[in-house]
Design a protein around this nucleic acid. Sequence first.
DNA 1: CGACAATGATACGGCCCCGTAACGATCCGG
DNA 2: CCGGATCGTTACGGGGCCGTATCATTGTCG
Lengths: 117, 117
Amino acid sequence: MVLEIKPTQALRLWREVHLDLVRDTQADLSVRQTAILLTIYLELPPHTVRGLAARLGVTKPVITRALDSLGKLGLVTRKRDELDKRNVVIQRTVAGALAVEHLADLVTARARELGPA
Amino acid sequence: MVLEIKPTQALRLWREVHLDLVRDTQADLSVRQTAILLTIYLELPPHTVRGLAARLGVTKPVITRALDSLGKLGLVTRKRDELDKRNVVIQRTVAGALAVEHLADLVTARARELGPA
DNA sequence: CGACAATGATACGGCCCCGTAACGATCCGG
DNA sequence: CCGGATCGTTACGGGGCCGTATCATTGTCG
């Protein structure tokens, strides 16, 4: 079940999806924010600021600010860890799950349209 | 030669490549800039500001500023159209071609690593 | 020639993101 | 109990992108 994709197809796929994203008035996430959102929704919880920072190779303020933005969009939520009150646990939301699902639809749809070569 | 990709695979692919892009210190293009760059390198020339604006569904200043940024990075070049001096023709560069090729490598490599489901 | 259209660039005010440094809160070990 | 480590946040200065409106240049057509 290996996914065989040629360089030309990869680029066309990337372009088509990005065109869709540009036209989608709502979605305007940066590369960092996208990486964070997908990590939260694809990897097993719990997720912490420090963990995400290490995972992405960025500093903690980057994560904090990204969570501020994603939170403002309703795509994630934060909650204090009751066991260790220094930690913050990032939680998923319905809106976030929908947004991720929407992205998946976009990519699969565009992939299906790709011709050969 | 249709590209079959499942939603879960699409999301994992999207995430892995975005993680690579975040770690790549250099690349920090916005969604718009990426769409513009790929359009320039995948569609047949000539490319104009107006044409790209219409193609992406954005205003002309967006294109002008994106070209400023991409030009500063050496990924594209602008040249006055001698036949109609109102037009500006966007040209490709070696560095730009390399960057696009690099992206293609990234996507194909990550796609190849995707397991089933 | 002269009014008008079209092209791309620029000005402006606003908002968001970045990296570094510092901060308050919390936990831990002696 | 208390100094130090850890966690997440905030402050600061700088830079980039956005949308709207406006501009200079060039072309077109009566």
